[in-house]
Design a protein around this nucleic acid. Sequence first.
DNA 1: ACTGTAACCTGCAGGC
DNA 2: TGCCTGCAGGTTACAG
Length: 306
Amino acid sequence: MPELPEVEVIRRQLEPLLVGRTVVGAWARASPRFAAAEGTVGLTIGEVRRRGKYLLLRGRRQTEPTDQPATQSATQSATLVIHLGMTGSLAVADAGRQAGRAATHHRAPAPDAERGDNPYLRAAWHLAASSDSPCASRTLTYSDVRQFGRIATVTGDDFSSIPTLAQMGPEPLEATFTAEAFWRNTRRSAQRIKTQLLSQRPVAGVGNIYADEALHRARINPAVRRITRAQAARLLSELRAVLAASIERGGTTLRDYASLTGSGDNQRHLICYGRAGEGCTTCGTELRRRVFDGRSTVLCPSCQSR
DNA sequence: ACTGTAACCTGCAGGC
DNA sequence: TGCCTGCAGGTTACAG
Protein backbone atom coordinates (compact mmCIF):
# COMPACT_ATOMS: atom_id res chain seq x y z
CA MET A 1 0.00 0.00 0.00
CA PRO A 2 0.88 3.55 -0.36
CA GLU A 3 2.91 5.08 2.42
CA LEU A 4 3.36 8.80 3.03
CA PRO A 5 5.17 9.65 -0.25
CA GLU A 6 2.69 7.79 -2.43
CA VAL A 7 -0.29 9.37 -0.67
CA GLU A 8 1.31 12.80 -0.94
CA VAL A 9 1.87 12.37 -4.69
CA ILE A 10 -1.79 11.43 -5.08
CA ARG A 11 -2.88 14.34 -2.89
CA ARG A 12 -1.01 16.86 -5.03
CA GLN A 13 -2.64 15.47 -8.16
CA LEU A 14 -6.13 15.38 -6.67
CA GLU A 15 -6.11 18.87 -5.19
CA PRO A 16 -6.58 20.93 -8.37
CA LEU A 17 -9.08 18.42 -9.72
CA LEU A 18 -11.35 18.33 -6.67
CA VAL A 19 -11.20 21.63 -4.79
CA GLY A 20 -14.35 23.67 -5.26
CA ARG A 21 -16.39 20.70 -6.44
CA THR A 22 -19.51 19.41 -4.76
CA VAL A 23 -20.45 15.76 -4.34
CA VAL A 24 -23.75 15.41 -6.16
CA GLY A 25 -23.89 11.64 -6.12
CA ALA A 26 -22.09 8.75 -4.48
CA TRP A 27 -22.04 4.99 -4.67
CA ALA A 28 -20.33 2.24 -2.70
CA ARG A 29 -20.13 -1.51 -2.84
CA ALA A 30 -22.05 -3.17 -0.05
CA SER A 31 -19.31 -3.29 2.57
CA PRO A 32 -18.94 -1.60 5.95
CA ARG A 33 -15.44 -0.54 4.97
CA PHE A 34 -16.65 1.61 2.09
CA ALA A 35 -20.31 2.35 2.75
CA ALA A 36 -19.47 5.73 4.29
CA ALA A 37 -18.68 6.98 0.79
CA GLU A 38 -22.38 7.51 0.27
CA GLY A 39 -22.63 9.88 3.22
CA THR A 40 -20.74 12.66 1.51
CA VAL A 41 -23.45 13.82 -0.87
CA GLY A 42 -23.72 17.57 -0.48
CA LEU A 43 -20.10 18.04 0.56
CA THR A 44 -18.27 20.88 -1.17
CA ILE A 45 -14.56 20.12 -1.10
CA GLY A 46 -12.52 23.03 0.23
CA GLU A 47 -9.14 21.36 0.54
CA VAL A 48 -7.40 18.06 -0.07
CA ARG A 49 -5.13 17.31 2.88
CA ARG A 50 -2.98 14.40 3.95
CA ARG A 51 -2.32 13.13 7.44
CA GLY A 52 0.15 10.26 7.54
CA LYS A 53 -1.21 7.81 4.99
CA TYR A 54 -4.75 9.19 5.14
CA LEU A 55 -6.29 11.46 2.54
CA LEU A 56 -8.65 14.05 4.00
CA LEU A 57 -11.11 15.79 1.71
CA ARG A 58 -12.34 18.59 3.92
CA GLY A 59 -15.16 20.93 3.25
CA ARG A 60 -18.66 21.97 4.18
CA ARG A 61 -21.98 20.38 3.50
CA GLN A 62 -25.61 21.30 3.87
CA THR A 63 -27.03 20.27 7.20
CA GLU A 64 -29.99 17.95 7.26
CA PRO A 65 -33.31 19.63 6.60
CA THR A 66 -35.03 20.47 9.85
CA ASP A 67 -38.65 20.96 10.74
CA GLN A 68 -37.84 24.61 11.25
CA PRO A 69 -39.01 26.76 8.39
CA ALA A 70 -35.48 28.03 8.01
CA THR A 71 -34.86 30.60 5.36
CA GLN A 72 -31.09 30.38 5.35
CA SER A 73 -29.19 27.19 4.57
CA ALA A 74 -26.77 26.16 7.30
CA THR A 75 -23.59 24.22 6.63
CA GLN A 76 -21.31 22.11 8.77
CA SER A 77 -17.72 21.11 8.26
CA ALA A 78 -17.22 17.53 7.16
CA THR A 79 -14.33 15.37 6.00
CA LEU A 80 -14.21 12.43 3.64
CA VAL A 81 -11.41 10.20 4.98
CA ILE A 82 -9.79 7.78 2.55
CA HIS A 83 -7.17 5.18 3.45
CA LEU A 84 -5.81 3.13 0.55
CA GLY A 85 -4.87 0.11 2.64
CA MET A 86 -2.52 -2.16 0.72
CA THR A 87 -3.99 -2.06 -2.77
CA GLY A 88 -6.30 0.94 -2.94
CA SER A 89 -6.13 3.38 -5.83
CA LEU A 90 -7.99 6.48 -6.94
CA ALA A 91 -8.88 7.76 -10.37
CA VAL A 92 -10.50 10.92 -11.68
CA ALA A 93 -12.37 11.07 -14.94
CA ASP A 94 -14.38 13.78 -16.63
CA ALA A 95 -17.72 12.81 -18.03
CA GLY A 96 -17.13 11.42 -21.46
CA ARG A 97 -13.39 11.11 -21.31
CA GLN A 98 -10.83 9.69 -18.95
CA ALA A 99 -8.74 12.24 -17.08
CA GLY A 100 -6.60 9.94 -15.01
CA ARG A 101 -6.08 6.36 -14.07
CA ALA A 102 -5.44 4.42 -10.95
CA ALA A 103 -3.24 1.59 -12.11
CA THR A 104 -2.12 0.20 -15.39
CA HIS A 105 -4.28 -2.87 -15.09
CA HIS A 106 -7.39 -1.01 -13.99
CA ARG A 107 -9.64 1.13 -16.08
CA ALA A 108 -11.35 4.05 -14.46
CA PRO A 109 -14.98 3.54 -15.23
CA ALA A 110 -17.89 5.83 -14.51
CA PRO A 111 -19.69 4.23 -11.60
CA ASP A 112 -23.01 3.66 -13.28
CA ALA A 113 -22.17 3.01 -16.87
CA GLU A 114 -19.05 0.89 -16.57
CA ARG A 115 -19.13 -0.53 -13.07
CA GLY A 116 -18.99 -4.07 -14.33
CA ASP A 117 -15.66 -3.53 -16.07
CA ASN A 118 -13.73 -3.22 -12.83
CA PRO A 119 -14.51 -5.92 -10.28
CA TYR A 120 -12.44 -4.09 -7.68
CA LEU A 121 -14.32 -0.81 -7.83
CA ARG A 122 -15.47 -0.07 -4.28
CA ALA A 123 -16.77 3.50 -4.34
CA ALA A 124 -17.42 6.39 -6.70
CA TRP A 125 -18.40 10.02 -6.39
CA HIS A 126 -19.97 12.39 -8.90
CA LEU A 127 -18.48 15.83 -8.46
CA ALA A 128 -20.01 18.94 -9.98
CA ALA A 129 -18.47 22.38 -10.09
CA SER A 130 -20.86 24.99 -8.82
CA SER A 131 -21.19 26.44 -12.30
CA ASP A 132 -21.60 23.06 -13.97
CA SER A 133 -24.78 21.40 -14.96
CA PRO A 134 -25.14 17.98 -13.32
CA CYS A 135 -24.39 16.19 -16.56
CA ALA A 136 -20.95 17.81 -16.71
CA SER A 137 -19.85 16.11 -13.51
CA ARG A 138 -16.42 14.74 -12.84
CA THR A 139 -16.03 11.30 -11.31
CA LEU A 140 -13.72 10.14 -8.51
CA THR A 141 -13.43 6.37 -8.21
CA TYR A 142 -11.87 4.17 -5.56
CA SER A 143 -10.66 0.67 -6.41
CA ASP A 144 -9.16 -1.82 -3.97
CA VAL A 145 -8.29 -5.45 -4.68
CA ARG A 146 -7.64 -6.69 -1.14
CA GLN A 147 -10.16 -4.42 0.57
CA PHE A 148 -7.79 -3.41 3.35
CA GLY A 149 -8.57 0.21 2.62
CA ARG A 150 -11.24 2.22 4.30
CA ILE A 151 -13.55 5.15 3.72
CA ALA A 152 -15.08 7.20 6.50
CA THR A 153 -17.11 10.35 6.73
CA VAL A 154 -16.66 12.48 9.84
CA THR A 155 -18.05 15.79 10.97
CA GLY A 156 -15.58 18.44 12.00
CA ASP A 157 -12.27 16.90 13.02
CA ASP A 158 -13.62 14.05 15.10
CA PHE A 159 -11.42 11.11 14.13
CA SER A 160 -12.24 9.04 17.20
CA SER A 161 -13.74 6.31 15.02
CA ILE A 162 -10.35 5.84 13.34
CA PRO A 163 -7.89 4.97 16.14
CA THR A 164 -4.68 5.21 14.16
CA LEU A 165 -5.64 8.57 12.73
CA ALA A 166 -6.83 9.86 16.09
CA GLN A 167 -3.47 8.96 17.70
CA MET A 168 -1.31 9.88 14.73
CA GLY A 169 2.13 11.26 15.53
CA PRO A 170 3.59 14.44 14.02
CA GLU A 171 4.20 14.85 10.31
CA PRO A 172 7.85 13.96 9.66
CA LEU A 173 8.34 16.68 7.05
CA GLU A 174 6.93 19.39 9.30
CA ALA A 175 9.86 21.66 10.19
CA THR A 176 8.56 22.29 13.70
CA PHE A 177 8.90 18.58 14.54
CA THR A 178 12.23 18.27 16.35
CA ALA A 179 14.52 15.32 16.91
CA GLU A 180 14.10 15.83 20.64
CA ALA A 181 10.32 15.50 20.32
CA PHE A 182 10.75 12.41 18.16
CA TRP A 183 13.06 10.84 20.73
CA ARG A 184 10.61 11.59 23.53
CA ASN A 185 7.80 10.00 21.51
CA THR A 186 9.81 6.80 21.10
CA ARG A 187 10.35 6.63 24.84
CA ARG A 188 6.65 6.26 25.52
CA SER A 189 6.70 2.65 24.33
CA ALA A 190 8.87 -0.42 24.89
CA GLN A 191 8.11 -1.93 21.51
CA ARG A 192 10.83 -2.52 18.94
CA ILE A 193 11.77 0.71 17.18
CA LYS A 194 10.54 -0.56 13.83
CA THR A 195 7.21 -1.65 15.30
CA GLN A 196 6.88 1.81 16.82
CA LEU A 197 7.46 3.44 13.45
CA LEU A 198 4.78 1.27 11.85
CA SER A 199 2.35 2.16 14.65
CA GLN A 200 2.23 5.77 13.36
CA ARG A 201 2.51 7.08 16.91
CA PRO A 202 6.03 8.55 17.24
CA VAL A 203 5.83 9.91 13.69
CA ALA A 204 3.21 9.76 10.92
CA GLY A 205 3.21 8.05 7.56
CA VAL A 206 6.01 5.48 7.79
CA GLY A 207 5.34 1.97 6.44
CA ASN A 208 7.43 -1.11 5.85
CA ILE A 209 9.45 0.20 2.92
CA TYR A 210 10.58 3.51 4.39
CA ALA A 211 11.03 2.07 7.88
CA ASP A 212 13.55 -0.42 6.51
CA GLU A 213 15.25 2.19 4.34
CA ALA A 214 15.59 4.78 7.08
CA LEU A 215 16.69 2.36 9.80
CA HIS A 216 19.30 0.97 7.43
CA ARG A 217 20.67 4.41 6.53
CA ALA A 218 20.68 5.43 10.19
CA ARG A 219 22.48 2.16 11.04
CA ILE A 220 19.94 1.27 13.70
CA ASN A 221 18.88 -2.31 14.42
CA PRO A 222 15.12 -2.55 13.82
CA ALA A 223 14.60 -4.85 16.81
CA VAL A 224 15.97 -2.57 19.52
CA ARG A 225 13.42 -1.25 22.00
CA ARG A 226 15.05 2.05 22.78
CA ILE A 227 17.27 4.44 20.91
CA THR A 228 19.49 7.29 22.06
CA ARG A 229 18.89 10.96 21.38
CA ALA A 230 21.65 10.88 18.80
CA GLN A 231 20.10 7.87 17.08
CA ALA A 232 16.71 9.54 17.07
CA ALA A 233 18.19 12.59 15.40
CA ARG A 234 19.87 10.44 12.79
CA LEU A 235 16.73 8.38 12.21
CA LEU A 236 14.50 11.40 11.75
CA SER A 237 17.01 12.93 9.38
CA GLU A 238 17.16 9.77 7.27
CA LEU A 239 13.39 9.38 7.35
CA ARG A 240 13.02 12.89 6.01
CA ALA A 241 15.58 12.20 3.30
CA VAL A 242 14.02 8.98 2.04
CA LEU A 243 10.46 10.32 2.20
CA ALA A 244 11.25 13.59 0.44
CA ALA A 245 13.29 11.85 -2.26
CA SER A 246 10.49 9.39 -2.92
CA ILE A 247 7.92 12.17 -3.28
CA GLU A 248 10.19 13.81 -5.84
CA ARG A 249 10.31 10.54 -7.77
CA GLY A 250 6.57 10.01 -7.73
CA GLY A 251 6.62 7.32 -5.03
CA THR A 252 7.63 3.66 -4.96
CA THR A 253 5.83 1.29 -7.32
CA LEU A 254 6.27 -2.38 -6.44
CA ARG A 255 2.98 -4.03 -7.32
CA ASP A 256 -0.26 -2.16 -7.11
CA TYR A 257 0.58 1.43 -6.37
CA ALA A 258 0.16 4.02 -9.05
CA SER A 259 -0.70 7.68 -8.84
CA LEU A 260 -3.30 9.25 -11.09
CA THR A 261 -0.74 9.61 -13.84
CA GLY A 262 1.15 6.36 -13.56
CA SER A 263 3.89 4.57 -11.70
CA GLY A 264 6.50 6.05 -9.40
CA ASP A 265 10.23 5.66 -9.83
CA ASN A 266 11.59 5.34 -6.30
CA GLN A 267 11.79 1.53 -6.35
CA ARG A 268 15.00 1.90 -8.37
CA HIS A 269 16.59 3.77 -5.48
CA LEU A 270 15.83 1.41 -2.59
CA ILE A 271 19.01 0.11 -1.00
CA CYS A 272 17.56 -2.18 1.69
CA TYR A 273 13.87 -3.03 1.36
CA GLY A 274 13.36 -6.10 -0.83
CA ARG A 275 17.10 -6.70 -1.22
CA ALA A 276 17.67 -9.64 1.13
CA GLY A 277 20.55 -11.75 -0.18
CA GLU A 278 22.22 -8.83 -1.92
CA GLY A 279 25.30 -7.04 -0.65
CA CYS A 280 25.03 -4.01 1.63
CA THR A 281 25.91 -0.88 -0.34
CA THR A 282 28.00 0.33 2.59
CA CYS A 283 29.98 -2.74 3.70
CA GLY A 284 29.16 -5.55 1.28
CA THR A 285 27.74 -7.84 3.96
CA GLU A 286 24.80 -9.88 2.74
CA LEU A 287 21.50 -8.25 3.68
CA ARG A 288 19.23 -10.57 5.65
CA ARG A 289 15.49 -10.95 6.00
CA ARG A 290 14.01 -11.29 9.47
CA VAL A 291 10.48 -11.16 10.84
CA PHE A 292 9.77 -8.85 13.76
CA ASP A 293 6.28 -8.68 15.22
CA GLY A 294 4.92 -10.30 12.12
CA ARG A 295 6.43 -7.87 9.65
CA SER A 296 9.10 -8.79 7.14
CA THR A 297 12.27 -6.79 7.66
CA VAL A 298 15.51 -6.49 5.73
CA LEU A 299 18.67 -5.34 7.48
CA CYS A 300 22.45 -5.42 7.29
CA PRO A 301 23.70 -7.60 10.17
CA SER A 302 26.96 -5.66 10.19
CA CYS A 303 25.92 -2.00 9.82
CA GLN A 304 22.79 -2.50 11.92
CA SER A 305 24.16 -4.69 14.68
CA ARG A 306 22.72 -4.20 18.12
C1' DA B 1 -2.56 1.14 29.51
C1' DC B 2 0.48 -1.61 27.07
C1' DT B 3 2.05 -5.69 24.18
C1' DG B 4 1.81 -9.40 20.99
C1' DT B 5 -0.98 -12.11 17.87
C1' DA B 6 -4.61 -13.18 14.73
C1' DA B 7 -7.66 -11.55 11.41
C1' DC B 8 -9.40 -9.08 7.56
C1' DC B 9 -8.94 -10.06 1.68
C1' DT B 10 -7.14 -11.30 -3.07
C1' DG B 11 -3.48 -12.28 -6.31
C1' DC B 12 0.84 -13.90 -7.53
C1' DA B 13 5.32 -16.38 -7.63
C1' DG B 14 7.74 -20.42 -6.67
C1' DG B 15 8.17 -25.37 -5.54
C1' DC B 16 6.74 -29.96 -6.40
C1' DT C 1 -0.55 -27.81 -16.35
C1' DG C 2 -2.18 -27.79 -11.64
C1' DC C 3 -2.14 -27.70 -6.69
C1' DC C 4 -0.15 -26.01 -2.58
C1' DT C 5 2.30 -22.77 0.30
C1' DG C 6 3.96 -18.50 1.52
C1' DC C 7 4.15 -13.74 0.80
C1' DA C 8 2.58 -8.77 -0.10
C1' DG C 9 3.16 -1.50 0.81
C1' DG C 10 -1.82 -1.80 6.79
C1' DT C 11 -4.83 -1.42 10.45
C1' DT C 12 -7.80 -3.22 14.09
C1' DA C 13 -9.93 -6.34 17.50
C1' DC C 14 -8.93 -9.08 21.09
C1' DA C 15 -6.58 -11.78 24.68
C1' DG C 16 -3.25 -11.65 28.18
